[in-house]
Write a protein that binds this DNA or RNA. Structure first.
Length: 885
RNA sequence: GCGGGUGUGGUGGAAUUGGUAGACACGCCAGAUUUAGGAUCUGGUGGCGCAAGCUGUGGAAGUUCGAGUCUUCUCACCCGCACCA
């Protein structure tokens, strides 16, 4: 019996000639990898490092197809890089804080920690059944006391650096989850998780100064060529940098309107505009409902108050906004135009946002669509100040605002300037007058991280009546969550717990209270990739030396849904940690691969609603419900989701076909960044290929046991051609690995094994003295090239081929350039670009000879009988195109 | 509305980046094999045509000896943002 590091080859009765048994093979190799710690990563000075990272899962209890795809891709990259002799770090862990654990605890009257750790145990088994090459020694969950401890520590370090602050803020309140949401977590005015309509509420909140890094986050994108354009565009738009001018209007009329003299604050109004070139077209101003001038007006005028109220109660849903009419309320106050001295009305308008710029805008109806609509509704003058090429604009007849480029008119000393130049000239004019200056504005706002939830990491702060906000001293960390809580969903147990929040102020020693908010769970995912580098570090959040050895992440793999949220927070947090000396590099993720969704048809029965795939019978393209025989509507092909029942459980797939088949299918069915349509027969195809491969290699080993892979050029031309195919395949698969088009890599190997199978079954050259070594080379190459896709079966076949050791020690094959040299090639002959004939010529044929041969070809001669040749284009090695008429 | 992307056989998808369109697979058709494991093997398979051939990459035009690939316009679908001044 053969042995390999204590692992037995399949027993005699079950060996070489027997069928491919994935369950046996996979269990065997998973145990071997585990026992021998094959994928343990330790820094090594001799090898180039490679850090591959997959987005860690939330421990929901079961893996889904999205995980399988994500981790199959990540593992393929890890194994490929190992074969390229790189020292690979491929870690995994658990994004373990969050609301589902609390909801489950409420439902089951248990504790979130128990639910979470039970789920992790279940999911770990599932992940292990996939045969992923993780360094499991680095595994952690973000709810581990250790991880929470060092996160609190980092929070305090950033607080010291003045990157964290607290302020009262109007927040997005999710009434179902009873918590605050960041702007990024509000989608179409609804909570990203609960789907409930978000309300506005004013609360004291902790913020990270992400806006301080807005410019670097924006510019950093340019240094990331390995990121998809879509993600970079989304982040660019999210940051929303704009150049403009901020200036102040003098405000008058307080006495007339309110019967009161203005306070200094009330007598001016700051506005921000990106269009200073249209300054002479300003005919009114508008302010947000929350603007101080609006509030002032409301104080004296109940109708204004009513109007403001109606603004705030309008929904923020997509539809509501789209149909929302432009409405305003005239404050009666007048703004003084800074250049003309003209008095213009100031309105409270329902479409002005308090949270962007200054909450007040100068309105130019002729050149801004919103202002145009507003002016039409309230009969405000429209003044054209930019004239584009073409027809003359007429303020009386124009039906929409002109927002294009052009020359200035009706603009006094600025007349005839082109508007781009005017932006600068006028900005300077503001500066000279001392009432305004060029400003940069961002759409991005600071990251609010306070959450009124139990199952999160406590914010390590103390509120003292005397001293105010005081940070918890580092030596008192960690602040653990209380274990003795009962979750009801009504109120945060950290608030209601009898003792947890009570403490003494570190400054004055008086009784004080802890901050009861916990941190946004995006905090945990903002530095987990750093903690992976030194997961056991006991004295600090990070071991800087180890972190700097492994960082940055060379390849990050995950879902596109994190394009803005997680990926922007993580970039920011990383840069902040860089600035407190925790890590050296500027960007955490050099290359980003965003995999597409796994989708499946949805089935809907008129009686039973959404059906599971096995609840409908298919015949002739029609589906019937197995329960009621009614016709089933086949809905759109959609992302697999529990609510639509269009899910396939990866565990069933792995139990039935094995992990290798599941992985192969996932990687073969589509390029990784594209959506993947789930298709049962595609799985069968992958399964059959692995069986064919198995049989082919068993056949080769049977016939040519002991043959050494060939290293020279075979004499027989069929064998030479086959060897050419082998090396062409190495070249193609290598290229596909580098360009991350894994589906075509598999195709290439399939072509190669098909060619090998053909030679064997044809039987013509199987007795050639070199046949064995050519086929043995093919077998070896097939095994190694496929190892990143299907690790278990390739290990088993490697061993079956009599190889010492395991594939962890193998190296990616090298192309023998001699093997790629072809004796003859096929040349296409076209007439006027249409295919007319093919020539088989020696590979080294000269241009002239090729032209001659093409023109002498029978079919070509026949086709040229009635026309005159005008020109002949010869592309050596490819084609000849004859231009004739 | 703005920004980004995608349209190729019955299906998933290829096409060395301007040079044989449809690789590889699924499905289907025909045949072989008394066929023990989700069969396997051989051949065929874009459309039209008996054939030579014609035609064909959402549509229209253009550049080019030559266009799935480049340019312009247009249609459809998908994703993101959405009154950001």
């Amino acid at each position: 019996m053969l042995h390999l590091n204590g692992v037995e080859l399949m027993s005699e009765s079950d060996n070489q000639l027997s069928r491919y048994n994935p369950q046996l093979v996979e269990t065997k190799w998973q145990e071997f990898w585990d026992k021998e710690q094959i994928f343990r990563a330790t820094p090594s000075p001799d090898q180039e490092k490679y850090y591959v990272l997959v987005m860690f899962p939330y421990p929901s209890g079961r893996i889904h197809m999205g995980h399988v795809r994500n981790y199959a891709i990540g593992d393929l990259i890890a194994r490929y890089q190992r074969l390229q002799n790189r020292n690979v770090l491929n870690p995994i862990g658990w994004d373990a804080f969050g609301m589902p654990a609390e909801n489950a605890a409420i439902q089951k009257k248990s504790h979130p920690a128990k639910w979470t750790y039970d789920n992790i145990d279940a999911m770990r088994i599932e992940l292990k059944s996939m045969g992923l090459s993780y360094d499991w020694k680095r595994e952690f969950a973000t709810c581990d006391p250790d991880y929470a401890h060092w996160e609190q520590d980092l929070f305090l370090k950033l607080y010291e650096k003045n990157l964290v602050y607290r302020k009262k803020a109007l927040v997005n309140w999710d009434p179902v989850d009873n918590t605050v949401l960041a702007n990024e977590q509000v989608i179409d005015g609804k909570g990203w998780r609960s789907g409930a309509a978000v309300e506005r509420k004013e609360l004291s909140q902790w913020f990270f100064k992400i806006t301080q890094y807005a410019d670097e986050l924006l510019e950093g994108l340019e240094k990331l060529p390995g990121w998809p354009e879509t993600v970079k565009t989304m982040q660019t738009n999210w940051i929303g940098k704009s150049h403009g001018v901020e200036f102040a209007f003098k405000i008058k009329g307080h006495k007339e309107v309110f019967g009161q003299e203005p306070t200094p604050e009330d007598s001016t109004m700051d506005v921000y505009t990106t269009r200073p070139d249209t300054i002479m077209g300003v005919t009114f101003c508008s302010v947000a409902a929350e603007h101080p001038l609006a509030k002032l007006t409301a104080k004296y005028n109940p109708k204004a108050q009513e109007f403001i109220h109606s603004c705030q109660s309008t929904g923020t849903s997509e539809e509501a906004l789209e149909k929302l009419e432009k409405k305003g309320f005239d404050t009666g106050l007048k703004a003084i135009h800074p250049f003309t001295g003209e008095e213009i009305p100031v309105f409270i308008a329902n479409f002005v946002l308090m949270s962007y710029g200054t909450g007040a805008v100068m309105a130019v109806p002729a050149h801004d669509q919103r202002d145009f609509e507003f002016a039409k509704a309230y009969d405000i003058p429209i003044r054209v100040v930019i004239q584009g090429d073409g027809e003359l604009l007429d303020s009386q007849t124009m039906t929409e605002a002109y927002v294009g480029p052009g020359k200035l008119l009706n603009s006094a000393e600025f007349d005839n300037l082109d508007n781009e130049t005017a932006k600068q000239t006028i900005a300077q004019a503001f500066d000279k007058k001392g009432i305004g200056r060029a400003t940069i504005n961002y759409r991005l706002r600071d990251w609010g991280i306070s959450r009124q939830r139990y199952w999160g990491n406590p914010i390590p702060m103390i509120n003292c009546k005397k001293c105010g906000v005081v940070p918890v001293p580092v030596e008192q960390l960690p602040i653990p969550l209380p274990k003795d809580v009962e979750l009801t969903g009504a109120e945060n147990p950290l608030v209601t717990h009898p003792t947890w929040k009570e403490c003494t102020c570190p400054k004055c020693g008086d009784a004080a209270q802890r901050e009861t908010d916990t941190m946004d769970t995006f905090m945990e995912s903002s530095w987990y990739f750093l903690r992976y580098c030194s997961p056991d570090e006991q004295n600090a959040p990070l071991n800087t030396q180890e972190v700097n050895h492994w960082m940055p992440v060379d390849q990050y793999v995950g879902g596109i849904e994190h394009a803005v949220l997680h990926l922007l927070y993580a970039r920011f947090f990383h840069k902040a940690l860089r600035d407190i000396g925790e890590v050296d590099c500027d960007e955490p993720f050099i290359n980003l691969l965003t995999q597409g969704m796994v989708r499946k048809d949805t089935l809907n029965c008129p009686e039973h609603g959404w059906l599971y795939p096995n609840e409908a019978d298919e015949s002739k393209g029609k589906y019937r419900c197995v329960k009621c025989e009614k016709d089933v509507t086949v809905g759109r092909n959609e992302k697999m989701s529990k609510s639509k029942n269009n899910v396939v459980d990866p565990n069933d797939l792995i139990a039935g076909y094995g992990a290798d088949t599941a992985r192969l299918f996932m990687l073969f069915a589509a390029p990784p960044d594209q959506d993947l349509e789930w298709n049962e027969s595609g799985v069968d195809g992958a399964w059959r290929f692995l069986n064919r491969l198995w049989r082919l290699l068993v056949d080769i080993q049977d016939r040519y046991q002991g043959a050494k892979p060939i290293t020279t050029t075979p004499k027989n031309s069929a064998l030479k051609k086959l060897r050419g195919k082998v090396h062409e395949t190495i070249e193609r698969v290598t290229r596909d690995m580098e360009r991350q088009q894994y589906n075509t890599g598999i195709s290439a190997v399939m072509e190669m094994t098909n060619a090998g199978g053909k030679i064997l079954s044809a039987g013509e050259v199987t007795d050639d003295p070199e046949a064995g070594s050519v086929l043995m080379e093919l077998a070896h190459v097939a095994v190694i090239l496929l190892n990143p896709y299907t690790p278990h079966i390739t290990e088993e076949l490697w061993q079956m081929l009599g190889q010492e050791g395991h594939l962890g020690k193998a190296r990616w094959p090298k192309v023998d350039p001699k093997a790629l040299v072809k004796d003859e090639i096929t040349i296409v002959v076209q007439i006027n670009g249409k295919l007319r004939s093919r020539l088989i010529t020696p590979a080294d044929i000269s241009k002239e000879e090729l032209e001659k041969a093409a023109l002498a070809d029978e079919k070509i001669v026949a086709n040229l009988a009635k026309v005159t040749v005008r020109k002949v284009i010869v592309i050596p090695g490819k084609l000849v195109n004859i231009v004739a008429n």
